[in-house]
């Protein structure tokens, strides 16, 4: 292994990492919003919305992510929606992650006990206050471990986007291998970078979990 070569390639890899983090950051943000709204719709009791959300979740989870990406990038333009590589990537990653976040948040909502509703009714809280100030914090706390898993998976799955030519970390590595044939060096460095990202994120998740659990600890 030639570490000087890795040092040489580092600026390129960092540019790739920046794209990886931007795409997955945007997708994480959007998918959390879609996930919260979707989970709320799914438990709203309004049947058509429930079926629609369930169908969406089942379809995304039942089809390969790579085919979804190709459908969005190559298929949508002929239906009149032309997105750049970057925004196709964000869209595909968001659509995929949202399906999982909806399930995670639904699990979180299910973990909030029914007594809470009676409690806020007896305190005279309005429906919106009850939903935003009481249920949401409890549900978010319950959903945190599983949604953290999805967030980590979102960062990892951004690697699939090299298949449509988004210049992210994996694409940079494969591109350089095509010119220099330094496969071992390149794969070693991107593996280390991905592992660091995953460790950092899951460490952050654990810290957050610990912090949010404080009101319940030590009893």
């Amino acid at each position: 292994m030639d570490f000087n070569y890795i040092l040489d390639a580092l600026p390129d890899l960092m540019r790739g990492l920046k794209v990886t983090l931007t795409v997955s950051g945007l997708a994480i943000l959007l998918s959390c919003i879609v996930g919260a709204v979707g989970a709320a719709l799914r438990t709203s009791g309004f049947k058509p919305a429930e079926y629609l959300v369930t169908g969406y979740v089942e379809f995304i989870r039942g089809t390969p992510y790579l085919v979804q990406i190709f459908f969005i990038f190559y298929g949508l333009p002929s239906l009149g929606l032309r997105l750049s590589v970057f925004w196709s990537g964000v869209a595909a990653l968001t659509l995929w992650a949202s399906a999982f976040q909806i399930e995670n948040f639904r699990g979180g909502l299910a973990a909030v006990s029914h007594g809470v509703r009676d409690a806020s009714a007896s305190l005279g809280l309005k429906r919106w206050h009850h939903a935003l100030l009481v249920v949401f914090p409890l549900a978010a706390r319950a959903a945190l471990p599983s949604s953290m898993n999805t967030i980590v998976a979102t960062v990892k799955n951004s690697a699939y986007l090299q298949a449509i030519g988004l210049v992210e970390l994996t694409f940079v590595a494969v591109d350089r291998i095509a010119y220099d044939f330094r496969a071992i060096e390149m794969f070693f460095s991107i593996c280390v970078i991905y592992l660091l990202c995953v460790f950092a994120l899951s460490g952050l998740g654990h810290a957050l979990e610990h912090r949010l659990n404080r009101p319940f600890a030590g009893r």
Binding site: N157, Y160, T170, A183, F187, C191, Y194
Partner: peptide, 18 residues
């Protein structure tokens, strides 16, 4: 743990190239 944390796309390419 490494296999679980490295993206599958990277593992597939890695095996193919290495």
């Amino acid at each position: 743990e490494c296999l679980r944390d490295i993206p599958l796309m990277v593992t597939v390419l890695l095996v193919y190239f290495i």
